[in-house]
Design a protein around this nucleic acid. Sequence first.
DNA 1: CAGTGGCACTTGTG
DNA 2: CACAAGTGCCACTG
Length: 71
Amino acid sequence: SFPTRRSSDLAVTIIKKKIKNMIDKENKKKPLSDQVICDNLNSEKINISRRTVAKYREELGIQSSSKRKRI
DNA sequence: CAGTGGCACTTGTG
DNA sequence: CACAAGTGCCACTG
């Protein structure tokens, strides 16, 4: 059930965009940590762990969200 | 203290 | 058999 639990590669791209979008839309002064992003995704029925969210973040070109509060 | 990054394990596919 | 993706904890950094 590996590919089953795994989202389609197309869905993964959409999830990454959602992460990037929510970070960009939310307050840069109060950045969303990967834990919060993970919680939001879980609320959207996208069940992935914090570890995975952090990896997606990196793939998006975002370093750590927390450090981005400098922007 | 809170958040982040790396390694190893697990499981299906070519 | 080897690879890729997602998941677990620990240790590091600001």
